[in-house]
Amino acid sequence: MAEIEVEDNPQRHRYEATSGQELLGVALYEREGDVLVLTHTVVDRAAEGHGVGSALARTALDTARDHGLRVLPRCPFMAGWVERHPEYADLVA
C-alpha cells in the first residue's frame, strides 16, 4: 500500500485517510468548545490492518494537542487506541 495521508475536512467534520486518490478511512468528530469529540471511525475493509486507523487517530490527537484541545473518544476504536498509547492520555477530557 502506498503512503497514507490524513487531512482534516472541517466542512464534513472528519479526518480523511487517503492513498493517492483513494479514500481509505475516516474519523468523524464534533467540536464542543475546546473539546474534540471523536464519534466514529471507519476504515475500508481492503485497508484494514495497514495502519489507516492508527494514522487517523495519531493525526486527530496530534492536531488536538497542537490546538490546545481536549479529546473525548466516544468511538470505541479511538478509546482503545488511546488506552494502548498512554502518551495521549493527557488529552482525554
Rank of each mutant, 00 (worst) to 15 (best):
Q21F: 12
T39Y: 09
D44E: 15
H85F: 04
R14F: 08
L69M: 14
D66F: 09
E32T: 07
A17H: 01
V6N: 05
Q11N: 11
P76F: 11
V42Y: 12
D62R: 09
L61P: 04
H13S: 14
E48Y: 10
V26Q: 07
V6H: 00
E3H: 02
V6Q: 00
Q21T: 14
E32C: 12
P10G: 10
A55W: 00
H50M: 14
V43C: 04
T18S: 10
A27S: 10
V26D: 06
E83I: 07
V6P: 01
Y88A: 00
T18C: 10
D62C: 13
E87A: 12
A17I: 04
D44P: 03
E48S: 12
V37Q: 06
L24P: 04
G49W: 08
T63E: 13
R14V: 05
A89G: 04
A55V: 02
V71K: 05
G51D: 05
A46N: 11
V71H: 01
T18V: 11
Y29K: 00
A27V: 06
S19T: 07
L56K: 00
Y15Q: 05
D90R: 02
A93E: 13
D44L: 15
G51V: 03
V35I: 14
P76E: 06
G20H: 08
E7T: 11
D66M: 12
H85S: 08
R65H: 05
Y88T: 02
V37K: 09
G33S: 14
A17N: 05
C75H: 00
G53Q: 06
E22A: 13
H67P: 05
V6E: 03
V71E: 01
P73I: 10
A93P: 07
D8S: 13
R45C: 13
L91G: 01
V35A: 08
L61Y: 01
A57E: 03
R70E: 13
T41P: 00
T59L: 05
L69G: 08
V92H: 08
R74G: 15
E3G: 11
R58I: 06
H40Y: 11
